[in-house]
Nucleic acid binder design. Sequence first.
DNA 1: CGCTTATTGATAATGGTTGTCAAAATCAGG
DNA 2: CCTGATTTTGACAACCATTATCAATAAGCG
Lengths: 133, 133
Amino acid sequence: MKRNTWQREAVREALDDTEGFISAQALHGALHQTGSPIGLATVYRALGDLAANGEADSLQSPDGESLYRACSTTGHHHHLICRNCGLTVEIAADEVETWAQKVAADHGFTGAAHVVDVFGLCANCTKLLAAGE
Amino acid sequence: MKRNTWQREAVREALDDTEGFISAQALHGALHQTGSPIGLATVYRALGDLAANGEADSLQSPDGESLYRACSTTGHHHHLICRNCGLTVEIAADEVETWAQKVAADHGFTGAAHVVDVFGLCANCTKLLAAGE
DNA sequence: CGCTTATTGATAATGGTTGTCAAAATCAGG
DNA sequence: CCTGATTTTGACAACCATTATCAATAAGCG
């Protein structure tokens, strides 16, 4: 039997309140900041369940972390993420949308979804690191 | 200065001899089976170099492993992946490259890398699932 | 050949993720 | 509103892929 716990609900809400992808660790941290004493293992479990149920989307960052996102087909957009400070900028990408659909269709693929996220160093971190090195 | 070692050559050849993607660990294992005493760390380094030079392709498996493959087309490109059977098609995406660079630059980001992968159902699986459901 | 220096490789360290298991919480039924 | 069966939680250990360390090795140059 499947039981409803406030923890699972908390994870779902935290994910809903998050723009774009977030790592399990970051989500756990965010929950803690709001005073929730939820455990890390529970966050992983809840995210895994959500992903298995199709309520969340997951992908792997270039660093090998698992990132999760609330699965809302509405309001599709992409992200520009600073790999140093985590700053995230939303980016519209109509060209990419059409490109993805076209590419998929050209190869006979259907039900095309796509993962398009750009990682880099934001202006600030670029400056900081340039000075540091 | 960059030196040529038999180890790097061995990794390149082992990768060439491999169909599809292979993990660093598996490649290391395969090399050992042929009697090569190459070290694991060296395999990782060699694969990283190959990927950096565009001679190899890398992606993350759903398990979080890094998978590598000898690159047919030298240069950066992306993937169209069937989410049912795992079929992978390489796709050139010049438009997306320039788009990613432009977007990053517009926001002051440097060192832009990007994750651009399209998931869908290949023609075959589309047919199979349509029949099955 | 000998020197300089990049490279190697055994091993330790790292870090995200998953397993463990006792304690707490949930739900159903009385 | 209790009670009991059972699921879920969560602190922590275990895992495992990957990366860093660093002394020893070997490539390339003169």
